[in-house]
């Protein structure tokens, strides 16, 4: 049973894979995958989606305490300033890490049914985005009351879409690699831990030493935080940062899609 079989290699032509034709409706598949994750997550819970609001508020409370009582900082509206960094970061880290594990955790579907497998990580990111939108909605209300509404808020859908494209691309890449190397999920966790400190969440861009600013400019998550504060709190236009974020997101999405498409053929042999 353990022998290799050189004759097979010598006699047969190289593998030819028929172009896959999917008959399904990708939006219906996506809808069902998202609602599956939602139902599985909140089944048998008393407070359900409420938790996605409680967690960032607890975090905000702790960080506000530390940075206004322990280390004093003179940032106006500090809790709101904090949430403008915390919410995009939380969305990024949670969507990316659950997205990374998504193909492996949906192994029973991937192994037995032939469908557009890209939809698995994408659906997980979209599911997280629903929480994010809810959190942003409450943040907007708070900012509207405390600071006031401004016209730059109209950029918010653009920023949100770019974030989605960026995280979907990253998740496509890492979820595909996670099938072959399950270490990938720990790599992602570690990167997220590092990013919590290296993204200006509880400090501002003004606190960064000028010789390190270029480094922060390379980080799309930091770019999102920067844009969020500009448009929501300071009534400033997003500027060139938005353009850079757009370019980075599209490149990441393209690479992620290419890698996923290239390796997904062998998923079922490794799951």
């Amino acid at each position: 049973m353990n022998q290799t079989n050189p004759q097979i290699g010598a006699q047969s032509s190289p593998p030819v894979r028929a172009p896959q034709r999917f008959y399904g409706d990708p939006w219906f598949v996506l809808k069902n995958l998202v609602s599956k994750d939602f139902k599985v997550r909140y089944r048998n819970m008393s407070l359900g989606i409420f938790w996605s609001l409680v967690n960032p508020l607890i975090m905000m409370g702790v960080l506000t305490f530390i940075f206004s009582v322990v280390f004093t900082r003179n940032i106006p509206n500090y809790p709101l300033f904090l949430l403008c960094g915390l919410l995009p970061y939380n969305f990024f880290s949670q969507a990316w890490s659950t997205g990374t594990m998504s193909v492996v955790s949906n192994a029973s579907l991937v192994k037995q049914l032939r469908f557009q497998r890209e939809l698995v990580p994408v659906s997980v990111v979209l599911g997280n985005a629903l929480h994010y939108v809810l959190q942003l909605g409450l943040l907007l209300i708070a900012i509207g009351i405390v600071v006031g509404v401004n016209v730059q808020w109209m950029w918010l859908p653009v920023v949100l879409s770019l974030q989605l494209i960026f995280i979907c691309g990253l998740s496509l890449l890492t979820s595909a690699l996670d099938v072959y190397h399950r270490d990938m999920r720990y790599v992602v966790q570690s990167v997220n831990t590092v990013l919590f400190w290296l993204v200006p969440i509880f400090y501002g861009f003004g606190d960064i030493p000028p010789n390190l600013v270029w480094l922060y400019e390379l980080n799309p998550v930091a770019a999102v935080v920067l844009i969020m504060r500009r448009i929501l709190l300071y009534a400033e236009p997003p500027g060139a940062t938005l353009l850079k974020l757009a370019v980075a997101s599209i490149i990441v999405a393209w690479v992620g899609h290419k890698v996923f498409a290239r390796v997904e053929d062998e998923f079922s042999d490794y799951l």
């Binding site: 097979i8 290699g9 047969s12 032509s13 190289p14 593998p15 030819v16 894979r17 028929a18 896959q20 008959y23 029973s108 579907l109 991937v110 192994k111 037995q112 049914l113 032939r114 053929d265 062998e266 079922s268 042999d269």
Partner: peptide
């Protein structure tokens, strides 16, 4: 069913496939 790919050779399938490859089927 298209959930796995051959190491060598080719497979062509014409039409819509429903495959029950295991009891639980996902």
């Amino acid at each position: 069913a298209g959930v796995s790919t051959p190491t060598r050779g080719s497979i062509r399938v014409h039409g819509r496939v429903s495959a029950l490859l295991a009891l639980g089927i996902g």
